[in-house]
Nucleic acid binder design. Structure first.
Lengths: 343, 343
DNA sequence: TGCCAGATTCGAAGCGCTTCGACAAAGTCT
DNA sequence: AGACTTTGTCGAAGCGCTTCGAATCTGGCA
């Protein structure tokens, strides 16, 4: 029912193939012919059929976004990856297809790549050792990552600069006068499965604190308020000299604040908290509003797509150096960080 | 490079078309032939090419999810729509494609539908009067909505039951003893563009309060803490008898709590707050944890897809009654609602 | 004026699959 | 036993586009 290329060709009085050349710029077409063709297209309201195009050319202009759905759902940050990626894709004339790949279900992934539906993939929630990445590599499908494996090799990625982020968090607290800072990480299970951010933030924090020459304590913590509360009490018991906490765990931080309430400590007068890698959309909901190092989530999503497209659109024979980028988080000072108490 | 249907056919020693019939069940195939074919497929690791299939059959098994990105980004609830929809699609063997359609950009939508890429669409963030819906109708593309227009007619949808939700919120507060309850809505602009939830919650609240025979005040409020704070002070000035607030505005509610702090009112001892249509993922972050009517977001996403698929997979000549479903929110009692103060 | 390189354009062969009409083989009914 | 379904299978015609080799048409130059 919709007009086809042959209809355009007839109306412009040229061969079908000429229309194709005019449309894609595959071969030179004289200015006058091109004009006639364009006009015919407009008049007919022609839209190339993506399927036919894909079948014939082996390029679909569809990208897959691999996002596993972890135990307790995705947050604001992940949503921003998605919208950023979708936007960037659209701007470049690509479509973004959602592939809810459970980590276990490698079969799904094979199914997806085998269908010839997608040109490339963007992998989210990458672990240090990620079988999806291996599989994509084997499948020969171009892809890039938001996050990175322990040894990305020549795989392109865009990730948060955790080294810098933890350094910034500590710098902020040191400027305020703190000299003993703790770090509350994601859950032990995130650490044990080798979830990238968890491991890297821990390492970054360790190094940053030791470079800065300050005392620090570090531990994982379950993703809920109760665990956060317990963790705080334990930390205080074992390290009473602690005056501030860097937290990369939005759910646990609530528990920490509740624990502070319990012992009638005020934030930031008696204790400071800096959240890292959490969106202001979330920290603004807390009272007092948390100081945070906000991740450039939308940017990461966009960048992930751009990196992937660079790869896809490069002539196939060029050596193409992988693009690997680390983006810093942005410090947003809230009301949860201040000078340490003069105890 | 990957095996094609003809390869399977040769290996099983049947005609190409027989393989197709065996694969799709389009025509009967004898058990023995079917077995041979299946074995050949396995041995070759055959995967049907989605593009070719789509081109020939006019059915792509791809659905589009139309989600506009409003001013200040999407929240947890929207993310859950997406994951719910993506999951449901996958379970039914469909793909979900993200179509970040700005409301203004009807052109994008035409582009999408014109490409023959998608079988149907799921529309999010529906307004009472939504041009996307009109356009999809004209385009003759099957679709369903998460949300609904003012007059959905025969269009299928899944939406929150705002009538019930506001009634439940009021019932909860009345049980606690409140007799004068206010309602803080979304922003005036949401109201004026006719964003469905905003309008329907307001109506629902009005009716529920009046049915319950209690006093109530109702007003929109900007989506930020400052506006929330100002709104509360104004409400208190004009209606000092107010003892509780129902709020459908996650960002403004923070401002309300700050305002309460300012006048040294405690929640819930001096004033009660019930959040509606906000995820516990969010209300758990507040202190005190907000009582909320949590929307069944994931369910809505799933349901939206199911409804759409029912339509798609029904034989084309049947009359098919539209499926229109309203889901209630679930009351999660937090620490923000209690008996009114004995003033 | 005649011949050739270069610039355009054409026709046809697929891309990998679905689907339709036809046909052979195997019952079914009277 | 002959005419007629039914069941299972085959071959061929597309689906709407890209792409390749070849044909056509310029103008330039001898």
């Amino acid at each position: 029912m919709p007009p086809r290329m042959i209809d355009v060709a007839k109306r412009a009085d040229v061969a079908l193939s000429t229309v194709s050349y005019a449309l894609n710029g595959t071969r030179p077409v004289s200015a006058s012919t091109r004009r006639r063709i364009m006009r015919a297209m407009e008049e007919l309201g022609y839209r190339p059929n993506a399927l036919a195009r894909g079948l014939a050319s082996k390029r679909t202009r569809i990208l897959a976004l691999l996002f596993p759905t972890p135990e307790r759902g995705l947050g604001v940050t992940e949503m921003e990856f998605v919208t950023g990626a979708a936007d960037a894709a659209r701007e470049h004339g690509y479509h973004l297809m959602l592939a809810p790949s459970e980590l276990r279900d490698i079969h799904e992934l094979e199914h997806l790549t085998g269908q010839g539906l997608i040109d490339g993939a963007l992998v989210m929630e990458v672990r240090l050792d990620d079988e999806r990445v291996d599989l994509l590599g084997q499948a020969g499908l171009p892809f890039s990552m938001i996050g990175r494996t322990s040894d990305p090799g020549t795989i392109s990625y865009a990730d948060i600069d955790f080294e810098q982020t933890t350094r910034d968090a500590i710098a902020h607290l040191m400027e305020l006068g703190h000299r003993c800072v703790g770090f509350l990480n994601h859950s032990p299970s995130a650490l044990s499965v080798g979830y990238g951010p968890t491991v890297r933030a821990a390492e970054g924090f360790r190094r940053a604190a030791s470079d800065a020459g300050i005392a620090h304590i570090e531990r994982p913590c379950g993703d809920n308020a109760a665990a956060g509360k317990a963790a705080f009490h334990e930390l205080r018991a074992s390290s009473p000299e602690l005056t501030a906490l860097v937290v990369m765990n939005e759910r646990a931080v609530i528990g920490v604040m509740n624990a502070l309430d319990e012992i009638s400590w005020r934030v930031p007068d008696d204790f400071s908290i800096v959240s890292i890698v959490s969106s202001t959309r979330v920290t603004e909901m807390m009272r007092p509003q948390l100081t945070t190092l906000e991740p450039p989530s939308t940017e990461l999503g966009r960048l992930g797509v751009q990196i992937l497209l660079d790869q896809l659109e490069r002539p196939h024979d060029e050596p193409l150096p992988p693009t690997q980028k680390l983006l810093p988080c942005r410090l947003v000072v809230g009301a949860s960080s201040g000078p340490p108490p003069a105890r």
